[in-house]
Design a protein around this nucleic acid. Sequence first.
DNA 1: GTCGAACTACGACGATCTTCGTACATTGTG
DNA 2: CACAATGTACGAAGATCGTCGTAGTTCGAC
Lengths: 120, 120
Amino acid sequence: MTRTTRTTPARHPEHPETARIRLEEVLSALSDPIRLRIVHELGRGHDDMACIAFELPVSKSTSTHHFRVLREAGIIHQYYEGTSRMSRLRTQDLEERFPGLLPAVLRARAMDTTEPDRTT
Amino acid sequence: MTRTTRTTPARHPEHPETARIRLEEVLSALSDPIRLRIVHELGRGHDDMACIAFELPVSKSTSTHHFRVLREAGIIHQYYEGTSRMSRLRTQDLEERFPGLLPAVLRARAMDTTEPDRTT
DNA sequence: GTCGAACTACGACGATCTTCGTACATTGTG
DNA sequence: CACAATGTACGAAGATCGTCGTAGTTCGAC
């Protein structure tokens, strides 16, 4: 109870500092179709979304796992709002650490329309 | 034996067409430190290098494996010259398929000096 | 306090990945 | 031809990954 005056309670997110974001970890995190989809949707303007709002084609435990991988890689920032876990892209941090990388990946993902979108 | 008039004999490289290069496969291939190092060295101007010239800290079989992953992902082009297997980055193909992606990764790799270079 | 909603922790399973050694193939040289 | 150099094919062993179900936590509403 150390002054939790906000709606955001004291749970432990564990985000890496910008300077400690590792390239291999970022690339590895982005090499999964579901995680790439999450990042894609977050980049589409839906800045803050709860995990459930993505309607991913996997179970909730798996969903939690993917969000954690993205968070620990330094790609997204997460915080609680009520019982919901909100996610946001760390666009600026990534731009500072690896300039042009995230935009290039997002543009590439938009072009890679090999498979239309059966992951609804 | 169908007209092998070149110094390049009839071995089967198996390269994907530019249009069939898949983003997730590229990112996955680049998320390994050894493969990232290979790509980094190829991007440094050493355009055509034999596998052995990289002096990777792994066995020959492992080396073959990593080069194959890069080739099947569409990142490098390989061809034989004598008993040596030469490798070259598919810079233009990648630029056509995913504009800006490879340069961004190479720049990021250059910045990611978390670990100096103990993989000599 | 009780209940449901949203999410997490933990263990488990199967698939894939990285690595290696050994055996083999191809080329160039003597 | 024999031989060395370079690289591949084929398992095999161990690690990691993606997925899930079940049980538990936290929050908001009643």
